[in-house]
Design a binder for these strands. Structure first.
Lengths: 131, 131, 131, 131
DNA sequence: GTGGTCTAGACCACA
DNA sequence: GTGGTCTAGACCACC
C-alpha cells in the first residue's frame, strides 16, 4: 500500500489516488476483499486533506472497485462488473488518440509507444481477473 | 478546416481546438505555411469567444505547431522542432498507462486497444513529416 | 513582496509582474518553496484585474520559475531547470545588441553600461542558485 | 544595404528596419550623407508593405538618424545629436537588467554575456563618431 | 480558500 | 484586416 502522490502534478490529488488504487488492483498488488487503509489513516500517511481521500474512495466505490462495510472499513470489491459504457469507451479512444498525436509531436516513435504498452500489459497480464 | 467543438465535454474548449489542429497537421490535412482561420473567423464559425480561440492559438504557437505573423494572421509552422522534453514524455507515459488500466476496467481487451492504435497511426503514417 | 507596476509603461502589465518575480527570485528575495500572493490578493494589492495576474503566473509556471499546487496556491519552484533554448539565446543576444546600439545613440559610454551590468550581477551574484 | 527582415519574429517589422539602419550606421557601413533606398525601393526589396518602411523612416528621422530632402531622397544625417533623455536612459537600464536576469534563467554565464558585449562594441568601436 | 475556464466588450499596435 | 492586452464578471473544480 504505497502511494505516490504529487501535489505539484496537474492531475487532481483524488484522481491520483483513484488511479493508483486501480493500478494496484489490476497488478494484483491489491486483491479482492483486502482491506484498504481508513480515510484518516491514508490522509495522515500521504499528508493530504481527509476530504480528498474521502472523495477518491467515494468515486472508487461508485465505480464498483471498492466497497465500504459500515463499521468495518473499506475493501477491494470481489465482484467487479465490467461496464461497457459507450461514453467511457469513446473517451478512452480520445485519450489514446491524444497520446498518439502528442507523442508524434514530442518525437516519440510508434515502437516506443508500443513498448510502453507491452510493459503495462505485462504488469497486469499475470493475473487476468475473471468476473 | 472543419472543427468539431463540443462545450459539453469535460475537455476545455481551447484544448479541443489545440488537439484538432494538431490532429489535422499530423494527418496532413493542414500543411506547412497553410493559413489558419483568423481568431475572429474561427470564433464566429464555432460560436465561441474570440479570447478562447486566441488562447488556443497562443498555446499552439508556444508549442511550435503554428506561427503568427503580425497583422497577417496565423499559419502552420514549417520548421517544427521535436522537443524531447522529459516531463512531457513522462506525462505521455502516464496517460498511456491510464488508458491501459481504465480500458481494463471497462472490459476492453488489449487487441481492441491495439486496433485503435493502428488506426490512428495509419491516419498519420501516410505523410510522415520530415525535418 | 512589493511589486512596482506601472500601467503607463509600454511593457504589458503581466510582463512587468513576470520580470519582477524573476528579479526577486534571482536576487534571493524570494526563495524556493516560498508562497506567492494568491491571484486575488495580488490583483487587489496592485489594483489590477485578476486575469492579468493569472496570466503572469501561468507564464512563470510555464517557464518553470514557479509552481502551482491545486487549491493551495502558487510557490517558487525549487528545482528550476535551465533551458538552453537556442531561440531564447538568440533573442537575448539581439536584445543585448539593441541595448548597445541604442545606448550609443543616446550618448552613453561603454563604461557606463558595464557599470550597470556589474551592479545587476552583484545583486544576483550573492546567492548563486545551485541545481 | 542588406536588410535581414523576418516577419516571423516578435519584433515589429518597422522596428527591425530601424534597428538595422542604426546598426549599420554605428558600424560605419552607412556613412553620413549616404543615400538610403527610397521607400518604394526598399519595400520592394524586402517584400513588405510600403507603409511599414515609411513608418520606419519617419521614426528614424524623428530620432535624427536620417534626414529627408524633398525631391532628392533620404540620407544618413551628418550631425547626429545625442539626446540624454532620462526616460530613454532608464528604459535602456531596464532592458539591460532584463537581459541579465533572463540570461541567468537561461543558464548563460556572465562571461558569455560580456563576450557578446565586447563583440558588439568592437564592431562599432572602429569609427567612434564625433558630434 | 485556491486557480482554471469562459464570456463580453473595450482599446491598441501592426501591416 | 490581424493578433495582443486588459477589464469585469461569471461559474466551476479542487483542497
Amino acid at each position: 500500500m504505497y502511494f505516490n502522490i504529487d501535489p505539484k502534478k496537474n492531475i487532481p490529488l483524488y484522481e491520483q489516488i483513484i488511479q493508483q488504487v486501480k493500478e494496484m488492483c489490476a497488478k494484483g498488488i491489491l486483491t479482492p476483499n483486502e482491506k484498504l487503509p481508513s480515510v484518516r489513516e491514508l490522509s495522515a500517511q500521504i499528508v493530504i486533506n481527509p476530504n480528498t481521500v474521502s472523495k477518491a474512495y467515494k468515486e472508487l466505490e461508485r465505480q464498483g472497485v471498492i466497497m465500504t462495510i459500515r463499521g468495518r472499513g473499506t475493501f477491494i470489491a470481489e465482484d467487479y462488473q465490467y461496464t461497457h459504457d459507450p461514453r467511457k469507451v469513446d473517451s478512452l479512444k480520445q485519450a489514446l488518440k491524444k497520446v498518439v498525436i502528442d507523442s508524434h509531436y514530442v518525437g516519440i516513435e510508434r515502437e516506443e509507444i508500443e513498448k510502453w504498452m507491452s510493459q503495462f500489459y505485462e504488469q497486469i497480464g499475470g493475473e487476468k481477473r475473471e468476473s
